[in-house]
């Protein structure tokens, strides 16, 4: 058990605990903030495994932008202090969600654990230049396709917002 193992276990425990709290808490904004901790813990895991660039991008994109957007949207709509019972789901929903989550976890474990094997894998820090080379040479077409997909989603969301907004104005 090296100090790296300990650090990885700690980061993983933080991630898991924060993720559980994020879905079980009854405070809306708390849920978003637990998500921050969970995503931050995941960045910690990446860092311990030697993927520095991925860890930094994780913090920059997910903690710094995505969750901030989530909290911003919560504040724009309704984010009361204290528990919000009107958003609490029924027992049946919760049981089904737990079943689905457990099933996906079991499926992933069944696939990934045999892949991992039993021997320890040497920790090799990944150099940013290698990732850049892979991303923009080998995987450049999937990368571009993804960015096109995101662009389409963006334009779609924009047009939906504009069209419904225009109709509402026309009616009134």
């Amino acid at each position: 058990m090296t100090s790296l193992d300990l650090a990885f276990a700690a980061a993983g425990a933080v991630t898991l605990a924060a993720a559980v709290l994020a879905v079980t808490t009854r405070h809306l904004v708390h849920s978003a903030l637990w998500l921050v901790l969970s995503l931050g813990g995941l960045a910690g895991c990446y860092l311990v495994l030697g993927a520095e660039l991925v860890a930094l991008v994780q913090v920059l994109v997910y903690v710094g932008a995505v969750v901030v957007l989530v909290i911003f949207a919560l504040m724009l709509t309704r984010a009361p202090i204290g528990p919000s019972p009107e958003h609490t789901t029924s027992r049946l929903h919760r049981a089904l969600a737990a079943l689905l989550g457990g099933g996906v976890t079991a499926l992933l474990l069944a696939v990934l654990v045999p892949l991992a094997g039993r021997e320890a894998v040497a920790r090799t820090p990944v150099v940013s230049a290698v990732i850049a080379g892979d991303l923009f040479a080998t995987w450049v077409w999937p990368f571009e396709a993804l960015s096109l997909l995101l662009l389409l989603a963006l334009i779609g969301a924009f047009s939906v917002a504009r069209l419904t907004g225009g109709r509402a104005q026309g009616e009134s």
Partner: peptide, 10 residues
């Protein structure tokens, strides 16, 4: 540095 300062918003 960019990642760290972006967390400060929170």
């Amino acid at each position: 540095v960019l990642a760290a300062t972006s967390v400060g918003i929170l």
